[in-house]
Structures are given as structure tokens and as C-alpha cells.
Design a protein around this nucleic acid. Sequence first.
DNA 1: AAACATATGCAACATTGTTGCATATGTAAA
DNA 2: TTTACATATGCAACAATGTTGCATATGTTT
Lengths: 161, 161
Amino acid sequence: METVDCLPPKAFRNRHRNSTETVTHILKKKGVRVTQNRVDLLDILNDAQHPLNQKDIEERLSVKPDRVTLYRNLRFFVDHKIIHKIEVNDSLTSYSLNRTFIEEEHSEEHLHFYCSVCHKVICMPQLSIKEYDLPEGFSQQSSKLIVNGICNICNEEKQEI
Amino acid sequence: METVDCLPPKAFRNRHRNSTETVTHILKKKGVRVTQNRVDLLDILNDAQHPLNQKDIEERLSVKPDRVTLYRNLRFFVDHKIIHKIEVNDSLTSYSLNRTFIEEEHSEEHLHFYCSVCHKVICMPQLSIKEYDLPEGFSQQSSKLIVNGICNICNEEKQEI
DNA sequence: AAACATATGCAACATTGTTGCATATGTAAA
DNA sequence: TTTACATATGCAACAATGTTGCATATGTTT
């Protein structure tokens, strides 16, 4: 079972003043090259409070690398399990830092919430995906659960109107 | 909560000799135009024992309509809730006839299994998606659960080797 | 500082989704 | 059955995203 944990634990968030340091540490630990593009990309994902899609990331990059480079680095990080890919729907894929890698602790596969109003993806590591009794002969490798709905912030705004 | 039921109930499968008749009936009941393209498309989905992707469908069509027409009709049927769209992952979308529409009965949203060996999507209407207690303020509209693994047939074949 | 493996940018192409528009076809009314 | 009209279709074209090959730039190790 693949492990996923996309929200920064509080302890972790406060411990590191300098995101770039942390991110560089991750890359070195993994034994891959530390380049500006990669550090920038991971910095952004490290700072994010929820998963970001490729556009979100591009918007936040001060120095924009070639589209292909960003694409390749995202794939590279996914392959190296440094970031986690969340396929929300046909046309939306989000990415988040895989913090289990840093924390050396494991969390179950969990639910991802997609707000149909603000289109944010919200990671809910506290909600593990429940088990299902598959029919005889079927074996499970991984699972993904996307819940569509309205998030707390958009629900509040709706009330105010 | 959207209702989904992709596998033909046995009673239903045996009742109709002529798929085209059934399919024409569906279109008429919905009050939309009955065209050859649409009947062919629904025929294929009606005959299928598991959800099909656009390529699967194209392969089975004896008379191939324009790519755009197939695309438009798939979207049209999804909008009219005649077929159900299953977004398996980034690059794979499958479609299945929405039999709840014919049967006038409802089933909960359920699990879809994706076999990583044969790449088939298998519908498991007997496994309803379990409920989750979302955090305060979040409301749920729909959900989708894709379980990746190895299906019964591919597991059997693995044993034989 | 040199040597080498790898990351990057660029050009190019593939796939899928999408729109506009002229023509063909299904359907309902005469 | 024919006519009239709304809608479905095919075609051309374009957008977004994913992907590869290759020359050049950069990082890492010695």
C-alpha cells in the first residue's frame, strides 16, 4: 500500500525556518541533483497548504522553466516518491510534497476532497480509505478516493449571501 | 448523491434479445433523436460486460463516425445521464451504460476496480462507497473510488506460470 | 580545474478535448 | 408523403497536455 501524507504536520512546519534548506536536504538524501528548478518547485510545494496543480505551480514560480522541464521534474519527483500525484479528474492533476518521506512515518492512503466551488484540492490525512472485501481472486495494490463537494470556506461564503 | 449501476443485472440481460430495440427505446424515452451513430454507440455499451474507453468503443464500431461525433455523443449521453463516465486516471476514461435509468431502481455510488495487468475497468455495484465524517463545514456532493490491483483472471494466469 | 553524468531548453510531434460552420438527417406537422 | 425545421454530423482548425530527441548548460566528483 502506497503511503501518502500531503499536509504539513505542525511540528514540521515550525521547525524549518528556511524551506530551501529542507528541500535541498530532501534532494541530497535522495541522491539526486540539486538544481534551481527543482529547489524552486519543491519550495512551492513545501509552502503550499493544499495540493497544487501545474498552473498553480507555474503562477508561483518567479523564474519559469520550460514547460517540458517542469513536466519532467514533476514526473521525476513522482517516480522518486518525493511528491505525490493526485488525479482529481480528467482535466485536473494536483501535486503535493510527500511528507512521509521526510518524517519517516507512514500514514494510510487517505481521502482527497475537491471543492466544486473554489476548485481547491484538500488533503484529509485523518480520513483513511476504508477497506473493502473484494470478490474472490481480486487483489488490491492501491486505491484513491476523491470526494467532491463544497469546502468549509465556500460553505461559509454561501451563508453570508 | 448520483446513482450508478454499470453491470447488467442478469434478468435484464436475458430479457432483451435485440439490443438495438432496447437502446432505441432508451433514446425515445429520453426524448432525444435516434440516429445510427447513437444506436451503434449504445449498442456497444449495452453489450459490454465492463466499462469501455473511447478506443475500445471505436474498435467495436463497424461504421466509424467522426472522432468529434463520438466525442460529442459520449458527452451528450453523460449529460443526459444515459451513460456513466468513469475517470480511471489521467489518461484513461471509461464509459458504461447507466442501467439505473432503464431499471428505475437506484444503487449507491460504488467502487470501480482497475486491473493493472489487463487494464480493464470492472464495475462493482455490490461494493458501495462507505461514508466518511468530513470535517465541520464540508458538504459532500459525490465521490469516486478507484481501486487498483490485479483482477481474478489475471491472478489465475499468474498462478499457472 | 577537468571530466563526466545529468538537467535543461528548444523544436517537433501525439493525443485528447473543443469550437464554428456548412451540410445532412431525424422528426413532427401539414 | 412531403415539407419545414431543429438538431446531428463531418470537416477544418485550434488549444491544452503529454512526450521525445538532441544540442547545450549545469552539477557533481575527482
